[in-house]
Design a protein around this nucleic acid. Structure first.
Length: 140
DNA sequence: GCCAACGTTGGC
DNA sequence: GCCAACGTTGGC
């Protein structure tokens, strides 16, 4: 079971919008980067990820679940990129900010810290558990 | 709003 | 196939 992180600017697509879209989830369109694409290709239905607000907020705010495996992104005219579908599972009790993550030595190797521009990232299990705890959730 | 980092594009 | 120029992202 792998863990992931999805980044979004809240002004474009926020956690609240993700929650409002309900159980059937939404298409994670718009990824145009091969590293991010590779992450999505590796995802399996049922795996979970963090929902991270970039720019405004700069915090992990919720947990999402992959509900549809990698398939072509119809918004990509070139046909080179695909996407997965995700749904909101639950919010963190308290958002875990980038500052808080950077302050934890055990999280210094997170992709979020070292390659902040990557829009879809893998998260190590130890990182997942720790951030869930920091966010006030017992599990993931 | 600035700018560093990085991915992509296109001329050669 | 290299690499300079350019555009975009995202933290600050």
């Amino acid at each position: 079971m792998a863990y992931w992180l999805f980044k979004s600017e809240p002004s474009t697509w926020s956690w609240d919008m993700q929650v409002a879209s309900g159980e059937h989830g939404t298409e994670w369109t718009g990824v145009r980067n091969h590293l991010a694409k590779n992450q999505m290709q590796a995802m399996e239905v049922g795996e979970r990820g963090f929902f991270y607000h970039s720019n405004e907020g700069k915090a992990v705010v919720g947990i999402v679940e992959v509900v549809k495996p990698y398939h072509p992104d119809h918004t990509d005219a070139s046909g080179r990129f695909g996407m997965v579908d995700i749904k909101a599972v639950k919010p963190l009790r308290t958002p875990v900010t980038l500052d808080a993550i950077k302050a934890v030595p055990r999280l210094k190797d997170m992709v979020l810290v070292n390659n902040s521009r990557l829009s879809v990232q893998p998260v190590a299990e130890a990182e997942w558990v720790l951030i869930c705890e920091m966010g006030g959730l017992a599990d993931g």
